[in-house]
């Protein structure tokens, strides 16, 4: 028999695992996605009722969100603090929930820190398109192109995920492509923007989060007996 240290299969398996672990952030928890999705759905509902209350009872009809497309600059500026505050609160809450679940998984995996080199690379890869997209959409809102804001948010977020996916789990790539597709769809049917926003940021995160949770984290009774 070969001595254990020379076992080529064990060596190859270990090398593969090390290469994966050192270049990708694999501790991302699926429950982080579910949490962020719930936050996004709650935020969408709040936005919907805010817009209904602001614009619903006027002569334009009960159309809350679509009424926003016809607002004057003064009206949009009046609504901006609430909408910006809501968006920032959603981002903060989603990040907090995501960090809690991912930190929990990191602990369970026996890693000392969540903030590893791949995690930092992932954060940078996500942040650049996200910040650019956020500023771009803010300008769209201020420049009388409100109907492009939701498609823009979805497309930029999708691109950010696509960009970050090379440093983390493969599912993130498909989540990104889903967001891009929904963003482009929102361009075609601007009236359904808020609905598609909820679909992408809410149900998209929840769906992929559950998928990832089931694949990588669900406690299983039977242990794999590999080598």
């Amino acid at each position: 028999m070969k001595p254990a240290a020379q076992d080529p299969l064990a060596q190859l398996t270990e090398i593969r695992a090390i290469m994966e672990r050192s270049s990708r952030f694999l501790s991302l928890s699926g429950l982080s996605g579910v949490g962020a999705g719930v936050v996004a759905l709650a935020g969408t509902v709040v936005a919907h009722y805010y817009l209904l209350q602001e614009y619903g009872s006027q002569e334009y009809g009960a159309q809350g969100y679509t009424r926003l497309f016809q607002t004057t600059e003064a009206e949009r500026l009046a609504a901006l603090p609430f909408l910006m505050g809501l968006a920032l609160a959603m981002i903060a809450a989603a990040l907090l929930v995501a960090a809690i679940f991912t930190l929990r998984r990191t602990r369970r995996d026996g890693l000392r820190s969540m903030w590893t080199a791949p995690a930092r690379r992932l954060a940078i890869a996500l942040l650049i398109p996200l910040v650019a997209g956020g500023l771009f959409c803010l300008k769209l809102y201020l420049s009388n192109a409100v109907e492009l804001v939701v498609p823009g948010l979805l497309v930029f977020y999708g691109l950010a995920l696509l960009n970050g996916s090379k440093y983390t789990l493969d599912e993130i790539k498909y989540l990104g492509l889903t967001q891009i597709a929904l963003g482009l769809l929102a361009l075609l049917v601007p009236g359904y923007g808020l609905l598609l926003f909820g679909l992408g940021f809410g149900l998209g995160h929840i769906g992929y989060g559950l998928l990832m949770y089931n694949r990588y984290e669900r406690p299983t009774g039977t242990k794999l007996t590999a080598s």
Partner: peptide, 28 residues
């Protein structure tokens, strides 16, 4: 490469372009 630490170091360096001492220490 007959030691697992050396194999590990090479594996990390092939998967990542440039790695600091601390990151290398941490991932292994």
């Amino acid at each position: 490469f007959d030691h697992r630490v050396r194999l590990g170091v090479m594996a990390v360096l092939l998967a990542n372009e440039s790695v600091s001492f601390n990151d290398l220490k941490e991932s292994l």
